[in-house]
Design a binder for these strands. Structure first.
Lengths: 129, 129
DNA sequence: GTAAAACTTGACACCCGTGTAAGGGTCAAG
DNA sequence: CTTGACCCTTACACGGGTGTCAAGTTTTAC
């Protein structure tokens, strides 16, 4: 498949796919004319990249982590620590978001209970912690 | 309290506090010499701002949402929809992160089971370390 | 063989909260 | 008054993934 097909299959723009390759996250075969060709497995790989990116891992970190997903041989203690710390970071991030969600949910809830009516009981201050 | 005190109390840099003010998220009284003075309540407000920022709301959105936390009078159906969509976004983000966490946790788990020990199906474990 | 669609590389721009430096003013203690 | 800590505004830079334009090449379809 060519870059347009992979783009369509994953939702990642061609620009992004080239960027992933640039950063060493994705590889491609080239046609005689120089155009990129991908195997079917690239779809899943791109999805994984997107997932890790959206979790806040930068491309350098993903480059460290990605190979070990496909190749057990290169797993090292250093990499284990790296993974562990990333996992920790993501979990902390989830916790932060959960707290913020409660703040937002509290506000939304008030709208639902008394739409457009004052309650005499302020929201944000109480739900902050 | 002055900006340094507020900074110390919240962990936000003076730079950030001025930026929040610039964006209309935070207000301050000024001394005759032009220096900012904050009431105690500013501490909580800054914490809220930080929380919303880390949840991915940008300052324009926060500016829309923040007033309604302290002043019910300005709540509108439009704002309700806004809050709702932000809440939805945050929840989707949490779900995404959860999935990614599972990926990372899976990898970390593998390390725990076989910490640096060859398994017999590895080809070149020694090569790279 | 020709046109259109798709691809190539390279470069520049954006977002947007934050860091940082310059050059100067304020304020409280000595 | 002086000193040193603190604060002021202005302005430039960054990260890092993505959008987008430009100018040229390849592939596909007719």
């Amino acid at each position: 498949m060519r870059i347009g097909d992979l783009s369509a299959a994953t939702g990642a723009s061609p620009r992004s796919l080239r960027y992933y390759e640039d950063q060493g996250l994705l590889s491609s075969a080239r046609s005689t004319g120089g155009q990129r060709h991908y195997p079917e497995t690239a779809v899943e790989r791109v999805r994984l990249i997107q997932s890790l990116l959206s979790a806040g891992l930068n491309s350098a970190t993903i480059q460290d982590v990605l190979p070990c997903i496909n190749n057990e041989a290169i797993r090292t203690p250093w990499l284990a620590a790296r993974l562990d710390s990333e996992l920790e970071r993501v979990e902390a991030q989830i916790e932060d978001l959960r707290r913020t969600r409660e703040i937002l949910a509290g506000l939304v809830e008030q709208y639902r209970v008394e739409p457009g009516v004052t309650t005499g009981n302020e929201v944000g201050a109480a739900k902050l912690s």
